[in-house]
């Protein structure tokens, strides 16, 4: 089965049709997807501001990791579940949509960015935290995250206008 074929099959599964045909299920899932934005992306943006030195000065990045980044994972969990369900209901149309494809590409890029950040800068965080200076590479990760997450939001909102 081709990828497009799989998307079309997905759209016609009992779960997908149940969501599409329900009066309140689709708005509820879509609303949850949007209202989880501040808890997921929003909290990541807060951490990016810390890395860039644009806010949260006078406190450690380690505390931000524990108090902000950790909780954003709950938000991202909600995002993936609700996003997956929304995708199911429109999978065939989403498949060929440029903005949907760009969104996936951006998410992949953000995943790689997070991996790089965790591999290169988290192990030595206590040292650069104590020195009070964020490494240039970590700042680049923060800037990339800030810009690309905004791109994800724009793509996500725009794709809905093309269905």
């Amino acid at each position: 089965m081709s990828l497009l074929g799989w998307c079309q099959w997905l759209e016609h599964t009992p779960l997908a049709t149940a969501i599409s045909e329900s009066v309140w299920l689709f708005p509820l899932i879509e609303g949850t997807h949007i209202m989880a934005l501040p808890l997921s992306v929003g909290l990541m943006l807060m951490f990016d501001l810390r890395l860039l030195g644009l806010a949260f000065r006078g406190g450690s990045a380690a505390t931000m990791m524990a108090d902000v980044v950790r909780w954003s994972k709950v938000g991202f969990g909600v995002m993936f579940v609700t996003g997956g369900l929304l995708f199911m209901t429109q999978a065939g149309k989403a498949y060929g949509n440029t903005f949907f494809r760009a969104k996936l590409l951006f998410l992949l890029l953000l995943g790689l960015n997070a991996l790089v950040y965790h591999a290169l800068f988290v192990p030595k965080m206590t040292q650069w935290d104590a020195a009070g200076r964020t490494p240039l590479g970590a700042r680049v990760c923060g800037a990339l995250s800030l810009v690309v997450w905004i791109g994800v939001i724009i793509c996500g909102r725009t794709m809905a206008y093309q269905f």
């Binding site: 934005l37 501040p38 808890l39 929003g42 943006l45 905004i150 939001i153 909102r157 725009t158 206008y161």
Partner: peptide, 25 residues
């Protein structure tokens, strides 16, 4: 136009994300 409303809605959502995150913290 085909891009007017998506653009406005995008600005609205990016603002919402930023605003509610600062309010939350």
């Amino acid at each position: 136009s085909s891009f007017g409303m998506p653009a406005l809605q995008s600005v609205h959502l990016v603002g919402l994300t930023m605003l509610l995150a600062t309010v939350l913290v």
